[in-house]
Simulated scan of single mutants.
Amino acid sequence: MKIGLYFGTFNPIHIGHLIIANHLAEHSDLDQIWMVVTPHNPLKKKSTLLDDYHRLEMVHLATENYTKIQPSDIEFKLPQPNYTVNTLAHLQEKFPSHEFSLIMGEDNLNSLHKWKNYDVILENHNIIVYPRLHSGEIDAQFVNHPKIQKIDAPIIELSSTFIRESIKNNKNVIPMLPNKVWEYVEHNLFYKK
C-alpha cells in the first residue's frame, strides 16, 4: 500500500490542508494520506501549540468524511523533538509492506537540507511537493532529483498562523475551517488570547 505522509502541527487544521490532502488522495497513485500530527516541530516554538490531543481531535473531526485520509498520532509515542527520519524508520519497521512518501510544500523543500539525515530520507522515500506562491529559490541538489516529484495541485495560501491571529482579533474564520473544527475551536475558546 502506498501511503502519503502529510506532517503538520495542524494548529489548527484548515481547509487548505484538506484541499491538498484530498487532491493527492484523488489525483495520485497514493492509496491513503495520513495526516501526521506533530507534537513538536524542531523548527517551531512549542509554547504556541495547543495540546497534542486537541490538535489530533481537530484532525479527526476534519477528516471523518474522507475515506482515503486519516489522522495519525504516530509521533506522540516517539522521542521529542520529532525528526522525520526517525518517524519514517519507525513506520517502516511497524508497516514493512507499506511504501511511505512524504508530502510537503515547495517552501519546505527549501529547508530540507537542514533536516536531520535528509539524505537518508531521500535514499529511502519519495517526496511529493505541492506548489506554493512564495517558495523562494530551490536548492540545486533538489532540482530534478529522481526522488522528488512536483505535482500540479491547487495553490492554497492560507496559514494556521493567520487563522490564529484572526481568531485572537475577533475576525470571522468560519470559511477557513471545516465546520466541526470551527465548532470545536469556538466551544473551547481556543486562540482567543
Score class of each variant (00 low, 15 high):
residue 28 S to P: 03
residue 34 W to H: 10
residue 35 M to E: 06
residue 37 V to K: 00
residue 41 N to K: 11
residue 17 H to A: 10
residue 26 E to I: 00
residue 15 I to W: 01
residue 38 T to K: 00
residue 23 H to T: 06
residue 20 I to Q: 02
residue 13 I to V: 15
residue 43 L to Y: 14
residue 39 P to S: 08
residue 42 P to D: 11
residue 33 I to N: 08
residue 32 Q to W: 01
residue 35 M to H: 06
residue 32 Q to T: 14
residue 23 H to P: 07
residue 11 N to H: 09
residue 27 H to T: 09
residue 39 P to R: 04
residue 10 F to N: 13
residue 32 Q to D: 11
residue 36 V to K: 12
residue 13 I to D: 05
residue 11 N to S: 11
residue 27 H to L: 00
residue 29 D to W: 06
residue 16 G to N: 09
residue 19 I to N: 03
residue 40 H to V: 00
residue 41 N to Q: 08
residue 20 I to C: 02
residue 18 L to Q: 06
residue 15 I to F: 03
residue 17 H to T: 02
residue 11 N to V: 01
residue 40 H to E: 11
residue 38 T to F: 01
residue 36 V to H: 12
residue 31 D to Q: 14
residue 10 F to L: 12
residue 10 F to Y: 15
residue 18 L to H: 05
residue 38 T to D: 08
residue 26 E to T: 07
residue 11 N to M: 03
residue 25 A to S: 15
residue 9 T to L: 03
residue 42 P to H: 10
residue 9 T to K: 14
residue 36 V to D: 12
residue 28 S to C: 06
residue 38 T to Y: 00
residue 35 M to G: 04
residue 39 P to V: 00
residue 17 H to R: 09
residue 32 Q to C: 08
residue 32 Q to K: 15
residue 15 I to R: 12
residue 22 N to R: 15
residue 38 T to N: 12
residue 12 P to I: 03
residue 24 L to A: 04
residue 16 G to F: 06
residue 19 I to S: 10
residue 22 N to D: 13
residue 20 I to V: 14
residue 21 A to P: 06
residue 31 D to V: 13
residue 25 A to M: 09
